[in-house]
Design a protein around this nucleic acid. Sequence first.
RNA 1: GGAGAGGUGGCUGAGUGGUCGAAAGCGCCGGUUUGCUAAAUCGGUGACCGGGUAACUGGUCCGCAGGUUCGAAUCCUGUCCUCUCCGCCA
Length: 453
Amino acid sequence: PNPESRTPNPESRIPNPEPRTPMLDRRYILENVDEVQKNCDRRGVRIDVGRFAELEAKRREIQTEIEELNRQANVVSKSIGQAADAQQRELRKAEGRSFREQKDARQAELDRLSVEADAIHRGIPNLTHPDAPVGEEGAKRKLRTGATDVVSFDFRPLDHVELAEKHDLIDFEGGSRVAGHGFYYLKNDAAMLELALQQYAVNLLRGEGFTPMITPDLARGEILQGIGFIPRGPETQIYSVENADLNLVATAEITLGGLYAGEIVEAEQLPIKLCGISHCFRTEAGAAGRASRGLYRVHQFTKIEMFAFTLPEQSDDMLNYLCDLECRLFDGLGIPFRVVDTATGDLGGPAYRKLDLEAWMPGRGDRGEFGEVTSASNCTDYQARRLNIRYKHKGEKGTTFVHTLNGTAIAISRALIAILENCQQADGSVIIPEVLWRYTGSQRIGPAAHEDE
RNA sequence: GGAGAGGUGGCUGAGUGGUCGAAAGCGCCGGUUUGCUAAAUCGGUGACCGGGUAACUGGUCCGCAGGUUCGAAUCCUGUCCUCUCCGCCA
């Protein structure tokens, strides 16, 4: 599938977005060139921070000149209004024009400089939590395991594709015919399971003070970029709508984070905890063939997402809290999993730290493998800067960027894999996790076992 | 989708080319008065970027982007959003 299309007019709705899109604060970078450079190195991001500092210094210099020229031009302009006779007036006009022309010339130079400086700036990723393991993807650190042990079957377990076929749960062929490879229909008990999982997750989160939200499934390019996605690039993971500045969201993180774009919230309202229900669309460009059998890597799925806006000092705890909730959700389902602290080299640009749950998938690979089912990230103020989301204390002056965090509660497609494969029985039936019975109305997929379990 | 109206400071709302960063009111902060509450009254009260130890000071900002002009909240173009009416529709 080719998601490429052109948008005639990318719009701006966020009031006064900093035109040069700060990722890290420019001043912070200038004052901490070495540290920022080291951080980029640890993440495997090739960036010349020193060069940025150089350009930025020059840029400021010119900016000061421009302001001075502007000031002089303003003085002249003001005097014209009070000028006595027409001759004086014309003289002053010429003077003013001259100042503006000089200014424009300097401005053009500044713009040229900014192009390079901004390109570097855009590439600078967020800082990294000191505890995050340093290295490539393999350097990730296992933090703990869930409450449920991995069961070794005394029969050859089926994978979820085989189980789905056996019980008529998923129509991959139909999905391909109608929408292409990577799309599918959930049928029968799988459809019911999706609804049940949604209810299960949302109810638990609501009890924890999250506001349930069914969000738009499309969003403006600007919002995507604020969150850290790059729509419409050659390698983009994002589907875009033709002739409109709209994109199918890859996660409700986009719509939940974007909800407060341009806002100043009262500090007393923080933390704000949202629970988003949305479909997620991903082109998965360049991912073909990579361990993506069945439901594991698809172009569309439903996801219950947690999102939090916090005070800066709250975000470390909030990340652990989101991760704990994910653990509770999967412990509740009886799925074995481990929690992994993502290595620096594998962090996305916005993430300061990322904790993943990897569930055991007995049908994956030769003898079962862990596969990522959730992901919780602390993005500190990286997204807030780009979306211009700040807080202020009531009655006080001055605003500060909030911290944003996101975490998967349940991504239905991956959860389905884990449930089908872990809960399968020797006779091929699947026992539905007990916490879902009240939503599914049934307890088992497939004929009851003849012998007991 | 069509027609019209509108988007101004924390809020309401004036302002149609030059002392407008923006009247007035509300709110907020401080003073005075009153026995608390409340009321009255006086004064203060936007954000961002830069310079300065500081007092202070330069620039930018009237949805957003661009244009005209010596000078734009004000004129022009595009666009987004809101409201009203019409059409269509789950």
